[in-house]
Simulated assay, not measured.
Amino acid sequence: MDLLEEYRRATFFFESGDPLGAARLLEPIVAAEPGNAAVRQLLARAYFNSAQLAGAEAQLRALIEHDPSDHYAHHVLGRTLERAGRFREALPHLRLAAAMNNHGDYADALRRVETWLGKNDDGRGPQA
């Protein structure tokens, strides 16, 4: 298998709106090259975009373990946890990302989760 060619194909699938196809191509690349942060990040994004949140979380935690200063990985992990309704767990990652990089999306996500937690004391989401 030509890993570079497969990565290019996966990128094309991802950019064409097929995150599931991208993930299928990226999984064996990450297995073959576990230290390749760019491939792991794209796999995490493919999982996130296809609502495979557990997979996204696992890839993002691996990225953060390797490089705790990766603000983008913290942001996407926070967004993944937010999307899963795990607001209290999302908050520290979103705060770190916003502190490390002054990016509008980071600030917006942080505000959204802080507001949510302020309105819902238990941080578990809407009340039934």
Rank of each mutant, 00 (worst) to 15 (best):
A97E: 01
L60I: 00
L25P: 00
L3R: 11
A46H: 05
P68C: 03
A51P: 11
R111P: 01
L20M: 11
D67W: 04
P126W: 09
H71N: 13
F87I: 00
Y72E: 15
G118E: 10
A107T: 05
Y7M: 14
L117G: 05
E114R: 02
F12G: 14
A84C: 04
N101D: 14
S16E: 13
A22I: 11
L4V: 13
S16L: 10
V76Q: 11
P126H: 06
D121R: 12
R124Q: 02
A107E: 11
T11N: 11
E27S: 13
Q52I: 07
Q41M: 14
L94D: 00
G85D: 03
R40E: 01
A32R: 11
P19E: 05
R79F: 06
G21Y: 03
R124D: 00
L42W: 04
L20H: 14
E65F: 09
P34E: 04
S16D: 13
L43Q: 09
G21N: 04
R8L: 14
N101H: 14
R24L: 10
R45A: 15
A84G: 12
A97C: 03
A109Q: 08
G123T: 07
D67Q: 12
A31Q: 13
D105K: 13
E15P: 04
A22K: 09
W116F: 12
R112V: 08
P68D: 06
A98V: 01
E65R: 15
N102R: 15
Y47E: 09
N49L: 10
Y47R: 06
L60G: 05
A37T: 14
A58P: 00
G78N: 08
L3F: 11
G104W: 13
H71K: 08
H74L: 00
R8K: 15
P68Y: 00
G85R: 04
K119E: 12
H75N: 11
I64W: 02
L117V: 03
E27K: 15
R40M: 08
P68G: 06
T80Y: 01
A97W: 00
N102E: 15
F13A: 15
E114G: 03
T80S: 11
A54Q: 12
G17D: 10
L60V: 01
N120D: 12
L3I: 14
V113R: 03
L3V: 09
L4P: 06
R40S: 07
T115W: 04
L25W: 03
